[in-house]
Amino acid sequence: MTLERWRLLLGEAGGACLGGGRLDDESAGRDAALEWLYGRDEDLRERGVRQSGNGPSNLTTFDWLDDITRLFPKETVERLQRDAVERYEIHDLVTDPDVLARIEPNPALLKAVLHTKHLMNPQVLRLARRLVEQVVRELMNKLATEVRTAFSGTKLRRPGRLRVARNFDMTRTLRANLGHYQPDTRKVVIENPLFFTRTRRHLEQWQVILLVDQSGSMTDSVIHSAVTAACLWGLPGVRTHLVAFDTNVVDLTSDVDDPVELLMKVQLGGGTDIARAAAYGAGLVDRPRRAIVVLISDFYEGGDAHRLVRIVRGLVEQGSKVLGLAALDSQANPDYDRELAQRLADAGASVGAMTPGELAAFVAEHVGR
């Protein structure tokens, strides 16, 4: 089985892996499907991989999709689809109505729809919207649980009766049981564990202002920003804004409660003027000490970097919390301009990358104070 996998990985160039033997019918089908996709890659051919030299396959995109769905496990199918739309820009995966009606929605296809929706006629756009709705609904369901957990209550330092692990008050418990210290075992015997009570106290309203870079490299962050904003919308103590930017700034706050509609309005690509977006966000702040400004960008500034640093420093000095996130997605593993990010950190911003759940926890921590 391992040798057969090497043969499938290398294409015909790996024929020696089978000692001159042939692939069975099912494996030959897998090989043909892989060849249809990766056989078009010049770099792979130069490295001796996937160099069958048999010319273009007669498979259509629809046939190929049907084959990989039948021949590969779900995780592999999603990877092949992602490579098709992102690496090889096979747009008919999301612009052909027959394919759209057949395809199983996943995050890679959502990204492809956002990149190619300007190519779609109204009929295809309606089908694509259904794909967007399903993927967004799955993301919303997952993140909503994390947000509810983050906002489930603030620990108040008074005794509580609910004896569950998350409410355990270690400091007070140790202090109350020091008399039971055993020198021979060097352990404290806990005879009377103490717990916090978790209650929701009155929350003063905070503004959460999400400024998201809609350049092509930030697609994952755009998607997760829309979903995060929708989950934060309407929570007690939180007033959410969502602003998308490239060289222009578009306030999408009116659509925050409908992330599908919001994403269908986003225009990916183009230049970047981060300073302009930061200035707009600063103008939205009503109560500086109750504002969290989240700047989501790869920090490759096409505008005035000096102005951007000045605006961030001004926000920090007036008491606002400024987060500079090079990624807001499920991986939080960004590629970004480290020099400008460091300058923003030196100006007082907290700079890094977060998952949506981590951002929700950050907001909940400050709102609950």
Rank of each mutant, 00 (worst) to 15 (best):
S330R: 12
V312D: 11
D257P: 05
R289N: 02
G271C: 07
L323C: 04
H306P: 00
G302L: 06
L263W: 08
I311C: 05
V266T: 06
V322Y: 01
A345T: 12
G324E: 00
D346N: 15
A277N: 03
G270H: 04
G324R: 08
V322A: 04
A353Q: 10
A332N: 09
S297C: 08
S320D: 13
D337K: 06
S320Q: 09
V351H: 13
D329R: 01
G283Q: 09
Y336G: 05
S254H: 07
Y300H: 13
L263Y: 10
G348T: 14
Q318F: 00
S254F: 00
V250Y: 01
A282D: 07
D273F: 09
L308A: 09
D337T: 03
R287L: 06
V250F: 04
L328G: 06
V351T: 12
N248G: 14
F299Y: 12
Q342T: 12
A332H: 09
I296E: 04
S297F: 03
R289L: 02
T253H: 01
G303E: 03
D286L: 13
D304F: 07
M264W: 01
Q267K: 14
L262H: 01
V285N: 15
L268Y: 05
G270Y: 05
A327T: 06
P334N: 14
D337N: 15
D329Y: 00
A275P: 05
Y280L: 11
T272Y: 07
A345R: 15
P356Y: 10
G357N: 09
L344A: 10
